[in-house]
Amino acid sequence: MAEMRLLKKGAEAELYLTEWMGLEAILKRRVKKGYRNPDLDLHIRGTRTSNEAKLLSEARRLGVPTPIVYSVDKRDCEILMSYIDAPPLKMLVGGMGSADLARTFLRVGEMVGRLHKGGIVHGDLTTSNIIPYSGLLYLIDFGLGEHTSDVESRGVDIHLMRRALESSHHEVSSAAYLSFIEGYQYIMGSLSELVLRRVDAIRRRGRYVDVSQRKEG
């Protein structure tokens, strides 16, 4: 067994830096959560692990850069994958000029468009899950993703991105979101219309919104 070094203890999983066939690799281990029912816990960790492994590979086939999966251990809820040694987009947004910001989020929008067009939603779009590396934008963390072409699921995906921008990057959230939408529309074409209308509906639904945004139901 190669040496393992704990890189990050996230909310859901622990990430270890290790080796696979002489290559730097990441071991992602979904750890047991003591606060929830053991049956429920095992079910959640198991499905998310196999889900993530599948979607990482499928997304890459759609032209969305993702880590390469080396192996999956469903029993221990572990995925071994290639290591992308760079900080996430979240850390970089603050230091971006407006042109750089617009260009980056346009590409993020295109990336999400390609994913949606290919029948996949990510389920957890945030700037922490996008890693700019060697000229590409890598998308990670597919545990909450699914195979679907539902307008609703696509809408929630976009809604999550928008909210992540508002909570973590409120100074630039409007500009970033506009560029993101531009890129998304570029790839999705006329398909984007229904989705974006649904995003507004999701925002209005079950949550309190600014009255000025409350257009026709």
């Binding site: 996230g10 909310a11 859901e12 959560k33 606060y35 929830r36 029912n37 429920l40 922490s128 973590s168």
Partner: peptide, 22 residues
């Protein structure tokens, strides 16, 4: 009742843990 509460609270606990990590 047990299952409903486990699932309902489990969901809010999970997103809380994510927010505290973030």
């Amino acid at each position: 009742s047990l299952s409903l509460l486990e699932v309902a609270y489990g969901m809010v606990a999970e997103v809380t843990e994510r927010a505290i990590a973030q």
